[in-house]
Design a binder for these strands. Structure first.
Lengths: 187, 187
DNA sequence: CGGGAATAGTTGACACATCATCCACGTTCG
DNA sequence: CGAACGTGGATGATGTGTCAACTATTCCCG
């Protein structure tokens, strides 16, 4: 068995059985959940999760216009991804590009009316789906632990050697369930 | 604010603030973790996570050959995805296709020597990365809770209305950190 | 002022996922 | 037997993500 990886003991502490089980459960769940949320979103709102993320960033901003690099940083996307994606969204009329006067290199992504109504239509259903699939299954303690686990792993991912990947400036608010106004009273 | 979604109260209970925070932490973490694992895998093994998943299924099987539909079921992939992906892997020499004699429609995906050495090279580094990024950050209790949360959500996703998506037969073992032989003694 | 270096963004090539469609074979039942 | 229908799988079109190269502007330093 193990002789399949002759150098294993020098490189790897492997995973404990408990960890193996947890990891496989997590991987499976996470894959299915992503798939389900994406499908749900495109079925009942005709936009993708990626579109949604971009639109959230735009509605989060007072004048509904964000620099491309700003988008890249807050979404943790590569700039070329932003560029391609915005191009596609522009073709569908969800956003529009504008040149930046103060910096000749820059350009803004601006929310259109179509874009605004798209996200306003999508957000409630999405939040509802998340609630039904995830939070209705979990106790308060579990929710808290989920947050702690996520924060710990995320911190590990964005500090030290790992951080090299993208020029991580600060980057807050990568994604919301409900666009910012969700300071909804009865929430 | 909330009048942005006039029908919201009829449709949605929204998320509690605690849940919002947990959800955003989870989404962020999960996105970064996926990205990091994929990048890591392709950098130090020259195969993708998808390749890895397919190869694991093959090495899991005594004679290292699996029917396409079998693959689709155990990975929870669509059959066309398998087909395309196997085509690419075949072009790179990681697997090869063989016709099924007992059923003229069917075909087998067979592990090649190159494929075997690819996964043998990839697995330890991958397991090590997962351990370093995830499990080294977590207490035993957190690992247990992570598994419980994952199982609860996964169960919700694969039962009832949600299950309609793919013809969910049974489908076990969608993905492993270490190909099956990982019944490693000291693990 | 001039000439690199850094920065903002785009582009093209390619890997990947999904969807709809198609084809070949098998099964069933008249 | 043979027509109808189901199944295993392949294919092409399209949307999406990544990498590497490129352009254009701005910054910096002499």
């Amino acid at each position: 068995m193990c002789q399949l990886f002759p150098y294993a003991e020098h490189v790897t502490r492997w995973l404990e059985p408990e960890q193996q089980r947890a990891w496989r459960a997590y991987v499976r769940m996470q894959g299915e959940l992503n798939a389900h949320l994406s499908r749900q979103m495109s079925v009942d709102s005709d936009i993708s999760m990626a579109d949604f993320a971009v639109l959230v960033q735009l509605t989060d901003t007072p004048d509904e216009r964000v620099r491309v690099l700003e988008l890249a940083r807050s979404l943790h996307w590569e700039k070329s991804r932003i560029s391609h994606h915005v191009a596609r969204m522009e073709k569908r009329g969800l956003v529009r590009r504008e040149n930046c006067r103060s910096d000749g290199r820059g350009s803004f992504v601006v929310l259109t009316d179509l874009g605004r109504s798209a996200i306003e239509a999508a957000a409630p259903a999405h939040a509802e789906t998340v609630r039904a699939l995830v939070f209705d299954q979990l106790s308060d303690a579990e929710v808290e632990t989920l947050r702690e686990i996520s924060e710990k792993v995320f911190t590990r991912l964005t500090t030290g050697e790992c951080a090299s990947v993208i020029a991580r400036c600060d980057a807050d608010d990568p994604m919301e369930v409900v666009p910012q106004e969700s300071g909804c009273p009865e929430a």
